[in-house]
Design a protein around this nucleic acid. Structure first.
Lengths: 342, 342
DNA sequence: CAAGCAAACTGTATCGTTACAGATTTTTGA
DNA sequence: TCAAAAATCTGTAACGATACAGTTTGCTTG
């Protein structure tokens, strides 16, 4: 009788073999489940000594909150979703970004979930999925466009996210971006310093935001350093390596052949070099090249290429910090960062 | 009164604005929540016409089961955990494996969660975490060792998993592996055919299983093709590129210099080539090299290297299929696969 | 025509957690 | 001294799904 009156909440003694729950701790401490729950969140209406006791027992039994329970009750998933195109990246930018994100999430309760999509036109689908199903507390996207519908959608729903790359819609949101404008400007400067006069740019596809940035820096460099820009048709970084090489070979054989190259990606540079060498020209001798690279493999095999390193892992870290900050309610203005080549 | 008697389960009419639940469908069809639940799983005790009706409405309102609800009630997480070392892979093998896994999971209810660990000695920690918290229904691990404690632990707990690489403990479990023995044997054969006599192997670190395989194929090739093996000290694929280059430079300057190289990874090959060229030797002229590569970038920059491609993306697909198969209860014997160079 | 049975459907309890509205005891204040 | 206030603690309900143990209805069947 007395027993029954005493504690109705944690009635059945929980098996100490199973994974401990609040009930386990409640049973062990003789407290109510609610009290234990509130003690563990350091609520103000729980006594200091009680909190200490609960914390001790919780630690002792290795209590970890059941994610499904929390998620069902509160809607909080403790998940960050990284939205990835299954097509992008021959050269694997995904690895370092995943590592960077993971590094930051490791010291938080967040898990990293990969949410893939298949074709560029479906880019909105994974974002919609996360929003509709509440699959995550925050989202990280890349391949950002100036008028990015994903950004518009998430802003409209007031959903926390961060973008790898900026937008241009007059919307303020968390992002991390590489200073592609600075890169391209500096690249042209270096080539001009080497006496190169006719510069070509292997640029990102026009629909992505960083196309503009890289183009802007490039064009400014062309003007400031008194050199000439050579057009590279419709070929961009999203073309296959084979296509890039073929196009560049054609360009090099034409009257319009450049003597300086700015390449927006390490993978693209490989194709350019192949095209260059196919027509019998040599780096540093006939042509100089500045390439943005995600790792130093290019320097190992072609030290003649001037490389500027984009630290993708750092980008991952910044992006993770940005989403988490947004989830925590920090203003978007404070969650924007730009990094320069290292 | 009548109304109240009629339906107690789905009493309050669910807001049609919110995400639909079983309750929503129950309300719309006038059925009980239980009936709807069972109808959607095609249970035998529900009438055919009812099932049809429920399915129609469910589709109409875009019903998707709440993962937290399912997980809490059944313990099923619908999550596959990919356990990753944050240190491995300068050259990003992670990207293609993630893509491969995602491709397979896309047509299933499974989500892919990245579970990282920091140092090699902590390799057991993430697995323990998943097991203890029930964070996933299945696990994929790599960097497999002959006596792998992670494998032992998961087998003991009867937990579904698949390994990238085999073990040697007399335990039968799902795996996918590259035929490193075949690769090394074939590599030696090719070098011997080119007239090379003194072959060195840049091999995986000795504690990983595929060290044995690669070593075995290499040694067999050495015997079968009547060539000589040159020792490469304690340097292996886990050393930094700088260390590999330095060691190889030393080796090339010694009396013991090889004229043929078998390299177990694309990244390692880069360092070897740098070391080689630092002593003024040339590929195909003084030395020939066969390298295992994850992508074709090496062929672009050094076509002189004979490459054998390991399709990591395919490995990802196979691993995903294997874990899912294991979860579905298929016997481990049927979930083992080996792939050769392409 | 009543008992038996199959078919079709439903209510209750539960998973682990937390919001909320008390309940109980102690302290304060006049 | 006694009511009000503060300090602690607790039970109930709910999140969405499903296992389980019914209930209802309509037919057989002897």
């Amino acid at each position: 009788m007395d027993e029954k009156t005493k504690s109705n909440q944690a009635s059945a003694s929980p098996s100490l073999q199973e994974r401990p729950t609040l009930k386990t701790i409640a049973f062990m401490t003789g407290l109510g489940i609610t009290t234990v729950s509130r003690a563990l969140k350091d609520a103000p209406d729980i006594g200091a000594e009680t909190k200490e006791r609960v914390r001790l027992v919780a630690k002792q039994v290795g209590y970890q909150p059941n994610r499904a329970g929390v998620r069902l009750r509160t809607g909080k998933t403790n998940v960050i979703s990284l939205v990835l195109s299954l097509e992008e990246e021959v050269m694997g930018l995904t690895s370092p970004i995943v590592v960077g994100i993971s590094e930051v999430l490791a010291s938080t309760p967040y898990h990293l979930v990969i949410t893939p999509y298949r074709f560029s036109k479906d880019a909105l689908a994974p974002v919609r999925y996360v929003l509709d199903t509440g699959a995550a507390d925050g989202v990280i996207i890349s391949r950002t466009e100036p008028k990015d519908p994903r950004v518009a959608l998430m802003m409209e729903r007031n959903f926390p996210f961060a973008t790898h790359g900026r937008t241009d819609m007059g919307l303020i949101h968390p992002y991390h971006d590489f200073d592609n404008e600075g890169f391209a400007y500096e690249a042209v400067r270096r080539l001009a310093e080497l006496g190169r006069k006719r510069i070509v740019l292997l640029q990102p596809p026009p629909h992505l935001t960083f196309h503009r940035h890289m183009r802007k820096g490039f064009d400014q460099g062309i003007r400031d350093f008194g050199v000439e820009a050579v057009a590279f048709g419709a070929v961009d970084l999203d073309n296959s390596l084979t296509e890039i090489r073929a196009a560049f070979e054609t360009l090099m054989r034409s009257d319009d052949a450049p003597d300086g190259i700015v390449s927006g990606s390490g993978a693209g540079s490989i194709a350019l070099i192949a095209g260059l060498e196919a027509v019998g020209k040599k780096l540093t001798q006939h042509v100089d090249m500045v390439s943005k690279v995600p790792s130093d493999f290019l320097s190992w095999l072609r030290p003649e290429v001037i490389t500027m390193n984009e630290d993708i892992r750092h980008a991952g870290r910044e992006l993770a910090k940005a989403v988490i900050g947004r989830i925590a309610g920090l203003p978007a203005e404070e969650l924007q960062s730009l990094s320069r080549a290292i």
